[in-house]
Computed example of a mutant assay.
Amino acid sequence: MKFAFFGSSLVSAYWNGAATYYRGIIRAMNERGHTITFYEPDAYDRQKNRDMADPEWARIVVYHPSEADVFRVLHDAMDADVIIKTSGVGVFDELLETEVAKLKDAGKFVIFWDVDAPATLDRVHTNDGDYFKELIPKYDLVLTYGGGDPVINAYTDLGAKKCYPIYNALDPSTHHPVEKDSRFDVDLVFLGNRLPDREKRVEDFFLKVAADMPDQKFILGGNGWHDKPMTENINYIGHVFTKDHNALNCSPKAVLNISRDSMAKYGFSPATRVFEAAGAGACIITDYWEGIEFFFEPGREILVARSGEEVKALLSALDPEKALHIGQAALEKVLEKHTYTHRAAELDIILQSELVDNRAVL
């Protein structure tokens, strides 16, 4: 089948946490015989900060962030069998979501793919006049990259015909073990952009931990932290390009995952970086969120902390041999159950069923 995706960016991870997710699922879909065109705006300096060339497994169309160009690419997408609007494009989201929903009337199968369902649902629930509320029932299908039953039920209550999670996963061709890099040889690494609904948790689970453990070394990566007070044992390295992610995950004793508040609230929402780190064989320490055991076995494949004090305790008791065993167990789990090949197969089953129900021809 031919797919048209309207998303933030496939070729740049700059201020774009969904890039790895898009790349993994779209590449795996192409390997299953599908043809994909990805439409992304020239916005937020992402094209100036590309970390990959146009791939062989997807056609990339970069458009100018103007209303006229949005309608031009919408017309171009009419050749597709399935047209997908993802959340968080960042420019003309309302226009794109409205116009893609209308394409159902033109005989197209239309999907809203929410890569930040907790944020979308919180926004809709707190604003009765939110434009997206009346659009939800107009889509044939809602897909999310996480959330489990709480998100499925929330979308169904808002009128979604069907809602399915397609969870984050690992692309072993891009994220895998590599040699350790002395640049990242520290005790704990956290990589994540500065966002309002994660900042307090970063303060508690990372910055305060570093301040209380002056004999340990820490690395903070991601955009926006440059003016945040931090102790001398933290090396702030800013944006980390995808080409360095494997080394960043392989080299420290442990890698920290900190969920955004909304993700932790809904649960069943592992960040892309959890699978990236596991794919590199990293020993992961994560804050607690409901559903962790659906993906990893706590204590054997991942370490779980409910507070900064528990992060300190875990890090203090973690020796290199134990860290190695936990990282290896996580790697084995993701290769067995949580690759994008697995997710693309799940997606195909969903689409086959839904398209048949809609009397569509594959």
Rank of each mutant, 00 (worst) to 15 (best):
I166L: 14
F218A: 05
N16V: 05
G279P: 02
R201N: 12
P252T: 10
I302D: 01
L195W: 13
S12Q: 11
Y39N: 00
E309I: 07
K228E: 13
A280M: 04
I111M: 04
G148C: 03
S316V: 11
A323P: 09
L10N: 08
F112N: 13
L188P: 08
V62Y: 02
Y63P: 02
R300Q: 15
T231L: 02
E290S: 14
E134N: 12
F294W: 12
V142P: 09
A68F: 12
A117Y: 08
F5A: 03
G90P: 03
H125G: 05
A323Q: 09
V115E: 12
Y340G: 11
V73P: 06
D185S: 15
V115C: 07
G90W: 02
T98I: 13
P270S: 07
N30P: 00
N358P: 00
G222R: 07
S87L: 01
Y145M: 14
K333H: 08
C163L: 09
D261I: 01
P320G: 09
G238M: 00
V178P: 06
T20E: 11
A80R: 00
T98Q: 15
D215V: 02
D130L: 09
D149F: 04
T20V: 15
K337E: 14
A313D: 12
G327E: 13
D171P: 06
E56F: 09
R359G: 06
D51R: 12
A43P: 00
